[in-house]
Amino acid sequence: MKTPHDLVLAAKQTVLEIPIDKAPAVIAQNDVLIDVREAEEFQSGHLPGAIHMSRGMLEFKLAANPQYQSRDLKITLYCKTSGRAALCAQSLKEMGYSHVSSIAGGFDAWQAAGFHVEKPVAPSFD
Rank of each mutant, 00 (worst) to 15 (best):
Thr3Arg: 03
Asp6Arg: 03
Val8Thr: 03
Ala10Glu: 05
Lys12Ile: 02
Gln13Asn: 06
Thr14Asn: 08
Val15His: 01
Pro19Ile: 12
Pro19Tyr: 14
Pro19Asn: 12
Asp21Val: 04
Ala23Cys: 11
Ala23Arg: 05
Ala23Met: 13
Ala25Ile: 14
Val26Pro: 08
Asp31Phe: 05
Asp31Gln: 07
Leu33Thr: 03
Leu33Asn: 07
Asp35Tyr: 10
Val36Tyr: 06
Glu38Leu: 15
Ala39Val: 12
Ala39Asp: 10
Glu40Phe: 13
Glu41Gln: 13
Ser44Ile: 15
His46Met: 12
His46Val: 08
Pro48His: 11
Arg55Ser: 14
Gly56Thr: 15
Gly56Leu: 14
Gly56Ser: 14
Leu58Ser: 11
Phe60Arg: 14
Ala64Ile: 08
Asn65Pro: 13
Tyr68Leu: 12
Leu73Ser: 12
Lys74Thr: 15
Thr76Asn: 01
Cys79Glu: 09
Cys79Leu: 08
Ser82His: 00
Ala86Thr: 02
Cys88Trp: 03
Leu92Tyr: 04
Lys93Gln: 11
Gly96Met: 06
Gly96Glu: 02
Ser101Ile: 04
Ser102Arg: 01
Gly106Ala: 10
Ala109Gly: 06
Gln111Leu: 00
Ala113His: 02
Phe115Lys: 04
His116Gly: 01
Val117Asp: 07
Pro120Tyr: 05
Val121Met: 06
Ala122Gln: 09
Pro123Ala: 06
Phe125Thr: 07
Phe125Pro: 04
